[in-house]
Simulated scan of single mutants.
Amino acid sequence: MQLGDLEKLVLQFLWSEKEADAKRVHAGVGAARGNSLNTIQTTLDRLFKKDLLSRTKQGHAHFYTAKVDRESLIATLITDVTADFIEDGEHSLIAAFASSSANLDDAQFDELEKLIEAQRKLRSRQA
């Protein structure tokens, strides 16, 4: 899955606002960038079709909410990007992560350890 710059901005806006119609998204994101309301409506529809947004009709307008949280989307995008370069059983994703984590400080490594431990506990409960 690929996301354009405007799509990313709209998602970030909806993560912070929780729910908005096209006019609200346009006021919060599109107007400052010079995007028309129609462009924002098209972007919202594309994100809806990509199954990243849900929408409900209220009166004449659709109100949109994000269907995925930020962390889940990042994980999906990383998996999509790396899938083209990783063969089954290969540990390139782990090696790439280890390489990219070189700039983390001790507090960030501590947080990462907590997240890994939480995932282990979740996995053991599901087994």
Results as ranks from 00 to 15, higher is better:
Arg70Phe: 07
Ala127Lys: 15
Val10Pro: 00
Phe109Ile: 14
Ile78Pro: 08
Leu6His: 11
Gln2Thr: 12
Leu52Asp: 06
Glu7His: 08
Lys23Pro: 07
Thr65Trp: 07
Ser36Tyr: 08
His60Gly: 14
Gly30Ile: 00
Leu104Phe: 13
Glu117Tyr: 05
Val81Asp: 03
Lys114Trp: 13
Leu53Gly: 00
Glu17Lys: 06
Ile86Asn: 05
Lys114His: 13
Ala118Asn: 05
Leu122Tyr: 13
Ser54Asp: 14
Asp106Ile: 14
Gln12Tyr: 12
Gln126Pro: 00
Ala61Ile: 15
Ile40Val: 08
Lys67Tyr: 00
Leu104Met: 05
Ala32Met: 09
Asn38Glu: 15
Asp106His: 12
Asp106Trp: 13
Ala83Asp: 15
Ser72Arg: 05
Leu112His: 02
Val81Gln: 10
Lys50Phe: 05
Ser16Asn: 14
Thr39Ile: 04
Ala75Glu: 01
Leu52Gln: 03
Gly34Pro: 07
Thr56Ile: 13
Gln12Asn: 13
Ser124Tyr: 09
Arg123Asp: 03
Glu7Asp: 07
Ala102Gly: 07
Leu9Tyr: 10
Leu122Gly: 07
Thr82Tyr: 13
Arg70Leu: 09
Lys8Thr: 06
Gly34Thr: 00
Asn103Tyr: 05
Glu19Cys: 03
Gly89Asp: 00
Val25Gly: 02
Lys8Glu: 10
Arg55Gln: 07
Arg125Leu: 09
Lys67Leu: 10
Asp21Ser: 12
Ile116Met: 01
Leu53Gln: 00
Leu3Arg: 02
Arg70Glu: 07
Glu7Tyr: 02
Ala32Arg: 03
Val68Lys: 04
Gln12Thr: 12
Ala98Ser: 06
Glu113Phe: 15
Thr76Asp: 10
Tyr64Pro: 02
Ile116Glu: 03
Asp51Gly: 02
Leu104Gln: 03
Leu93Tyr: 09
Asn38Asp: 15
Leu122Pro: 02
Lys121His: 12
Gln108Ser: 12
Ser72Thr: 04
Leu52Arg: 01
Ser99Leu: 12
Ala118Cys: 03
Ala61Asn: 15
Gln119Val: 08
Thr39Ala: 11
Ser100Glu: 14
Gln12Val: 10
Glu17Pro: 00
Lys49Asp: 11
Leu11Gly: 02
Arg24Ser: 14
Leu73Cys: 08
Asp51Ser: 05
Ala31Gln: 09
Ala20Cys: 02
Gln12Trp: 10
Thr76Leu: 11
Glu117His: 05
Lys50Leu: 08
Leu112Ile: 09
Gln41Asn: 07
Val81Glu: 07
Ala20Asn: 04
Lys67Gln: 02
Ile116Pro: 01
Ser54Ile: 14
